[in-house]
């Protein structure tokens, strides 16, 4: 096996191991639930026999490690159990919501990543100028602001005062672009706000690091003009850190999705999970948590692999 292939395999294995540890953590966290789940599901009026039957059906009479393995097998076979609240299969509950969340996240990434890269790169190129300082203060402020402030302000201005946009989400119609724009404008803008700031800051930092290195000074002394300097000499070397920054910002996007879906009453996976938490619907919460974690880990892993492939030292040993 070539060193590159071995490195990629090691990263992959480490990703799988991490996911396994995460699953254990998620399982342990929900295991801390005090009281008897079966009793909680059936209510105080249930007969002891019914409770015992449910306990057996949910494997609550089994030792913890066995239940973990059973749950893990369920995850792998997409048998996610049934909701404790309404008895519907968790898989179908999630199946109806997941595409909506992916759409929201995808649209946000489409808007946020280019804007953020532009801001980050220009700030690095013109570092030390007034433009750089303004971008710096703005992005610092944006990452510090809670999403619900951005969302409430947006609603206040665009829905309550100006009546341009609907305050709440009222159904999807994928066929009408105008409708889509109206519906998604505020959720996507709110989410992008923080993500843009985060990626822009990290991009600027990565690029500034590279711009301080001596091969950049050498290029300046060769008479290379600023634009070529950044695009040809600096950017390829900052690619790894920038890709990582984009992937890490997804964790901010995730936190934001939870808030934004709740505020705008958007029928996504995060809203489903928040509802599950308030009703203590553990199978649902566990499954949602695993999907979010897996998605996040997958992105980080992809970024990692891209960074490895972008590194000539590893590609051409």
């Amino acid at each position: 096996m070539s060193p590159l292939a071995r490195l990629l395999a090691a990263r992959l294995a480490s990703g799988v191991l991490t996911l396994l540890i995460v699953s254990l953590l998620v399982f342990l966290a929900t295991e801390m639930l005090p009281g008897d789940v079966a009793q909680a599901v059936l209510g105080q009026s249930a007969t002891p026999d019914a409770v015992a039957a449910l306990r057996a059906a949910m494997h609550l009479d089994q030792p913890g490690w066995l239940r973990y393995l059973l749950w893990l097998r369920g995850l792998l076979t997409l048998d996610l159990g049934r909701s404790l609240v309404n008895g519907l299969p968790v898989a179908s509950l999630i199946g109806s919501r997941l595409p909506n969340s992916l759409l929201l996240a995808g649209l946000t990434a489409l808007v946020a990543v280019p804007v953020a890269l532009l801001l980050g790169i220009t700030a690095a190129v013109w570092r030390g100028t007034a433009y750089d300082r303004v971008v710096g203060v703005l992005t610092v402020s944006a990452v510090s602001v809670p999403e619900f402030l951005v969302a409430t302000l947006a609603v206040l201005v665009f829905a309550v005062r100006l009546h341009w946009l609907p305050a709440m989400f009222y159904g999807l119609d994928l066929r009408s672009p105008g409708h889509m724009l109206l519906v998604f404008a505020m959720p996507v803008a709110t989410l992008s706000f923080v993500v843009v700031a985060q990626i822009a800051r990290m991009t600027r930092a990565a690029l500034t690091n590279v711009l301080d290195s001596s091969y950049i000074e050498m290029a300046v002394l060769k008479g290379v003009r600023p634009l070529r300097l950044v695009l040809r000499h600096a950017l390829p070397n900052a690619l790894g850190p920038i890709v990582n920054a984009v992937a890490l910002s997804v964790s901010f996007l995730l936190g934001g999705v939870i808030i934004v879906e709740t505020i705008f009453n958007y029928p996504g996976l995060a809203k489903l999970m928040v509802d599950g938490v308030s009703t203590r619907d553990m199978p649902l919460v566990q499954a949602c948590a695993m999907i979010f974690c897996a998605a996040y880990l997958l992105l980080v892993l992809l970024a990692d692999l891209l960074a490895i492939l972008a590194n000539p030292r590893l590609r051409h040993p």
Binding site: S213, M218, P236
Partner: peptide, 14 residues
């Protein structure tokens, strides 16, 4: 200009 450390003065990505 020929710099002291060529290892640092060559761009690693090209």
């Amino acid at each position: 200009y020929i710099a002291q450390s060529a290892a640092a003065a060559f761009n690693p990505a090209q």
